[in-house]
Each structure stands twice: as C-alpha cells, then as structure tokens.
Design a protein around this nucleic acid. Structure first.
Lengths: 346, 346
DNA sequence: ATGAAAGCGCTAACAA
DNA sequence: TTGTTAGCGCTTTCAT
C-alpha cells in the first residue's frame, strides 16, 4: 500500500539502487549511445524493481516532454474521433503521448488553448481546422513543430494535411445536378476566423458550390444560408432555405452535422426526404450510414489524415524543417437522402 | 517578426527588465502575499512589455502545473462533450487548463493514459467511466487529487460524480411497462473492467432492468443482449434480440449510441418503430431529439456533472482530503420511439 | 516588503 | 564506457 504523500521515485533513486550514475540511467531511458549491455541490464532491473517512471515535466526542462498537443475545435463531430484514432495509432509504438485541448468557437479562446499547449512545452502541435490567421499559425510554428489539418493555405513553416474540399463539393453538386436538380441550395458555416477566407474549408465548399452552379448555367438558382456546421445550424439554415419561394429541391449541407439538422427541418416542414427535398452532407460520419438517416455524403478518411499528421509531426520533431503538404482525395457515398426531384426517386 | 530559434522570455528577463528580483516576479504571477502595489505595477508592466508567459513545466518542478487531466474513454459520445463543456466552464476564470486524454477500450491502454497524465505532473485527474479497479483508482488518488465520474463505488480517497442510474433505468422500464409492454429486452455493455460489477453504470442499468421486470412478475420475459454501448453494438444486440421468438415488443438500450444502432436493426428487419418495436435509450444526447430519430431517452445533465467534477477537483487541489459524492438525478424524456405495443401508438 | 540562493528531476557537456 | 556537474525556469525557504 502506497503512503499518501509518498515521494515519487526519481532517477537518483534508480541510480543508487543500481549502483550507477544518474547519467547512466538517463542514457538507458533515452536509449542513448554509450551504455554496455551489462549496465543496461542493471538499470532496467532497478527501474522495474522501483517502479520508476521518468517525470515528463523534468525532462521537458532540458529536452523533450514526449507530449503532442492536439487542438480540436470541439469533440462533437465524430469525424474528429477518426482523426484522433489515426493519430493515436501512429504514436502507438513511440514514447509520445497525444493530449487534446478544446479550441472552442472563437479566436480568443482558441488562442488561449494553443498558448496553454506551448506553456506546457509540448514537443509538437497539431491544430485541426484552426480559426487563427496564417500569421499566427506561423508564429506558433516558429516556436514548435506544427501540423495544420483542414486548412488549405501554403506555408513554409508548418505541414498541412487536408481534404480536397473542392473535389468533394464538386462531387456533391454534380451528383445533384445529374439527378435533375436545379434549385440546389447550400448551407455554409459562419466563423470568427482571421484566416484568408479562401483557406477555410467551408468557404472552399461554398465557393465550389457556386462555381459549379454557374458553370452549369444555374447562377440564378444559387441560394446560400450562412449558419453553422452543427445540428442547430443546419436546422436553422434549412428552415430559412425552405421558406424561400420557390423552395429548393435539394440542400447540400457543408457538413453531416448540419445535414442532420437539415433533415430535421425538412421533416418538421411536413416534407419528406428525398421525395420533396434531397439532402446531402459532407464527412460521411457513422451516423450518415444509419438506416433512418441514410445520408448521401462525401467521405474523407479521417484515420488516414490523423496518421499522416502524426507521422509528419514526428518527422518535424526529429528535425525536418521543410514543409510538406498531404492531401486526401474524397469520394461520394450515395445513399437514400438524395434522388431525382419530384418524388420520382427512392 | 519572431526569429525561429528565439529563446522564450523567462522570469529572469522580466525581473531584470523591471529592475526587481525574480522572487518578486514569482510572487506577482502567483498572486502571493507580500508585494507592494508599486512593485506589482512595475512587474505587470514588464510582463506586458515582454509578453512573458510562465512556463508551466518549470512551475511544475516545484509547485503546480495548473493542468487538469481529463481521461475520456473516447470522444464519440456527445454526452462527453457536455461534460467537457461543464468542466471548461468551471475552469474558465481560473489559471487551470483542462487537457484530455483518450482512455480507450481496455484497462491496459487506459492505465497507460492515466500514467501519462501523472508523468506530466497534472495537478488533478478526472476520470470518466474508468475501467480500472477501485484499488487502482485509489492508488491514483493517493498520488494526485482525483475525481471519478460515472462510477458508483464509495471511496474515501477520491470524489465521485455520478448519475443515479438505478433511478434512470427504472424510469425507462416502468415507462415501457405502463405502455403495456411485457416482452421488454435490454442491450447492455461488455467491458474489460476489473471493477466490481455493481460499481459500473451499465451493470446497474442492466440489474435494475432485471429487478423491475421481476418485481412486476415478468421474470420470464427478461432478455438481455450483451454487446457494446456504441452504434455497432446496439445494431448487433438488437439483431440478436429480434431473432428470438417471440420477439420483444420493446428494447431498452443502455445508451443512446446503442439505441441508434438498435433503430437501424429494427428498420433493417422490416419492422417499424414504434408500431412493431419500441426503442428507448439513455443519455438524451442531442441526436435523440432529431425528428427522424425521436428517441425516448433518459436525460442526465452532463454539463452539471462536468461543472461539479471541476469544482470538486479544484477543492481537492486546494487541500480538501475528505471525500465528496455528487449525484445527478435523471429524468425521462418521452419521444416518438416508444408507444403501446401492437401498433396502437404513435 | 524585498531579495539571495537552494533545489525540483532531469539532460547534456565535459572529464576521466 | 562511465561519472561529475552545470544548468533548464520556476517556487520557496530564509535572511535582510
């Protein structure tokens, strides 16, 4: 039984127990060069016997903390869980541990969160869909190895991992057009960002929607509700769109979470999906596949993105300084929520 | 523009810039006693001018890291997001920051995660629905202030915050019985835990289901599928239950996530909800309220639980050692997924 | 009220 | 290969 205030075992305890120097112990736990097998054995035995665990905080004062900071805007989107799982998998056989922090919905809160990460001396930072300006991201990247997910701008200070949102959005709009829809509306996301609009994924999805509509001669049918990428946002955005006259026959929500809300709004309006209104989302979260949702959606592999982010970040921690960009190509998963207009589909 | 390798501003920089001792600066940033207003001013100005931020890692070597570790099994359940938001709110005007770590689905991985938290010298730990044995939790609690969420056992070493799962499960079963159901089945969760079964929420929900069935004379109708509290688990559990003959007229899934899968299985079987089978969940996640889900569910306030956990933990960090237990009373939210058996409801 | 200095548990020069 | 020792940036006695 461990006593309440018991002092933690330190490297010095291990050293004296193994009858060696602290340097030797330090070298062993770091797998550094210059230790004989015999020494290694003695030290490892002592570590076992005493149950020693290096204190990351103390290591951080000189070297690394073996901590990777993952900034997530929130934890309500199952897509983020896929990213986390990918990252965790990539870190699995290393000494690094991923810690998450919630970035929140405003730049101010996000900044505090990222500062908190740096104050804790994490060895590297992964930011998912940050709101910060490129300048701020580069400031962070100059201080710590950094990988940015889901932002499109090109920087020479950090690595980027992102989905080709233009391709994804194009898949959706062309799919709806091919079904015969003309009055296709879109729900986009309003943020508090300081980034260049064109670098944010929701703006890319939105702009692509407009472009494709134009290219097909439906510039006049463009209808965008600016709301939020969450259920409530999708619900409100869809309500607004459905109240227009004539009302759209299809709604492309920029994210599954918003699409769920849109489905709700359609039902509430006494309309049915897809007979009266088709609905499509983006992210292909698990929920989209549920039989009473069956949402047509764009699949982007979060696991692959998380693994890539982890790999790139570790490379940077090990010394790489050149910037790398990793792109994931999305694909469309057609389900029951989209069909030809006028109830002729199923 | 910040130079790439630029050294971080330290307390010594602030001290020399303000022409005072490092001790003085330290006192100011800790709001400690024994500083004149003039001194305070000088120091604060210097901190501003240099953009100084204390390094949590260094502070941790002697004092606190101002870091709270939150262990979550995973981030797929929106209910956890409510807990996190409550905690974040509670910590908002303090110097503490919450960091999350994923505990995973096995004791081994969970143990690594919690060890990682302790190695980083967090000031306190909050564990949500841990798999560890009570003995292990107490070991952790002896080393760090600890609050455990969603476990029912009584310990004098850590604080507990939990929902009255017995009351919640009873609400569901009695609701279904009152509707006229007899063949009520249950989907429970299978874990890897070393805890006493009676301390785990899914076992309490399950045992309560059995007890209430017995008390109403339906011991023979008890049917339990042991699966998992996630979509796939609910789907498989429901498939198994629906294949029994006679098949149940109602399914009580121990968690909304599982209920979503159960809904899918019912649809897939060509049956409708609630006409053929009623389905109820637990957690009242946002999804339950969606019009094409309308899941009857038990509401437990995650925000309140998160706030309580934060408050209790800070109290412990400040020195309290006596154990506190905080219970949340659940309520039933009846929606369209439950009705009288035989299609007479809606 | 203020400051000097020891020390937290490590890592990394440097010596031996 | 092994050990000695000087810090890393703070907090905390303990003098003044």
């Amino acid at each position: 039984m461990v006593a309440p205030g018991r002092r933690r075992v330190t490297i010095a305890d291990v050293a004296s127990h193994a009858q060696v120097s602290v340097t030797a112990v330090s070298k062993v736990i770091r797998n550094a060069y210059g230790v004989s097998p015999a020494m290694k054995d003695k030290v490892k035995t002592a570590i076992q016997e005493l149950g020693y665990r290096p204190q990351a905080v103390a290591r951080g004062m000189r070297g690394r903390t073996f901590t990777i900071g993952l900034m997530l805007p929130h934890i309500r989107n199952p897509f983020f869980a896929d990213i986390l799982d990918g990252l965790t998998e990539q870190l699995d056989n290393t000494d690094y541990q991923a810690f998450m922090i919630q970035g929140g919905a405003t730049r101010k809160v996000e900044r505090r969160a990222v500062d908190a990460l740096m104050d804790r001396q994490v060895d590297g930072i992964i930011m998912v869909a940050p709101l910060a300006s490129k300048a701020r991201l580069e400031e962070v990247a100059k201080e710590k190895p950094t990988v940015v997910l889901a932002r499109h701008e090109r920087s020479s200070y950090y690595d980027s991992v992102y989905d080709d949102d233009e391709a994804g959005a194009e898949l959706v709009v062309k799919h709806l057009l091919a079904l015969g829809h003309r009055r296709i509306a879109h729900i986009t996301h309003q943020d508090d960002s300081q980034a260049r609009p064109a670098d944010l994924l929701h703006n890319i999805r939105s702009a692509t929607y407009e472009r494709v509509m134009r290219e097909h001669g439906f510039a006049d049918e463009i209808a965008i509700a600016t709301s939020f990428y969450h259920e409530k946002g999708g619900y409100e955005g869809a309500r607004e769109l459905l109240s227009r006259s004539p009302r759209p026959t299809a709604i492309f929500a920029g994210a599954d979470q918003a699409a769920l809300g849109a489905l709700a709004a359609v039902h509430e309006a006494g309309l049915s999906v897809p007979a009266d209104v088709s609905v499509a989302g983006y992210d292909n979260t698990h929920l989209a596949a549920l039989p009473n949702i069956t949402l047509t959606s764009v699949d982007q592999d979060g696991g692959v993105m998380g693994r890539a982010a982890g790999k790139l970040l570790l490379e940077r921690v090990e010394g790489r300084t050149s910037a790398v960009r990793f792109t994931v190509t999305p694909s469309l998963v057609v389900r029951g929520s989209t069909a030809a207009p006028g109830g002729s589909g199923g």
